[in-house]
């Protein structure tokens, strides 16, 4: 464990807590893509199957449980309590365009052609694009509540921090994880446009609004 990864995981944890906090305080899941949240459940469940057969550490164990549990809880909230505040008409990204290619790529690029390793690869590739329905929704509405942008910013910071973590690991442990690195770079790249608006508007105290 190094500082970059720990801070990255902390940002990831914080992003989820911010999202849950947003839903409870505004009593709404307006502006949140159900599809992106559902993809995260798929990501965590397929990636953390190793909970059943590999022990890493107490930290690793509880973080995995938290990510699976909290993502399911978010879906649950969106489908029950806050269902009336959700607008499927604007959450229109076609996720089959993500699931299909990720399945094919996972079958080609994996560290071992075994069910759990293929699912792990799949989860890495899927995570890298899982934010697209959310960014698409944001693009469509052209604006976002400030708290929603903090959620997205924390999620982007989490991914960005994994990059120095891999560089650090390359120099200290001499190991590279090409699948995670490639997907991680793609995922971080998707946030660049968002971050530009976040830094130039939200952090200056303005509302998040995309240029017309």
């Amino acid at each position: 464990m190094n500082l970059f990864r720990f801070l990255g995981d902390t940002a990831h944890l914080a992003s989820i807590l911010v999202l849950i906090h947003k839903m409870h305080t505004t009593k709404s899941c307006r502006g949140i893509s159900f599809k992106t949240q559902a993809l995260y459940v798929a990501v965590f469940v397929t990636r953390y199957l190793d909970l059943f057969y590999r022990w890493v550490s107490l930290y690793n164990f509880f973080m995995k449980l938290f990510f699976i549990g909290s993502s399911c809880y978010i879906l649950f909230l969106m489908k029950t309590k806050f269902r009336p505040t959700q607008d499927p008409a604007i959450d229109t990204f076609r996720i089959e365009y993500l699931l299909g290619p990720c399945t094919v790529i996972a079958l080609i690029f994996n560290y071992k052609f075994s069910p759990t390793e293929i699912l792990w690869s799949f989860s890495i590739f899927l995570e890298s694009v899982a934010i697209l329905p959310q960014l698409f929704l944001l693009q469509r509405t052209g604006e976002a509540e400030t708290i929603t942008t903090h959620y997205l910013a924390a999620l982007g910071i989490y991914r960005a921090l994994y990059i120095p973590n891999w560089i650090y690991r390359y120099f200290t442990e001499g190991v590279v994880d090409p699948i995670a690195i490639t997907a991680g770079l793609v995922q971080t790249g998707l946030y660049i446009d968002f971050f530009y608006v976040y830094v130039t508007k939200v952090l200056q105290g303005q509302k998040f609004e995309l240029p017309a």
Binding site: V56, N60, R169, Y170, V175, V176
Partner: peptide, 10 residues
């Protein structure tokens, strides 16, 4: 460097 999956990462 060796190419391998980092099994302790989340």
């Amino acid at each position: 460097a060796k190419a391998a999956r980092e099994k302790d990462e989340l």
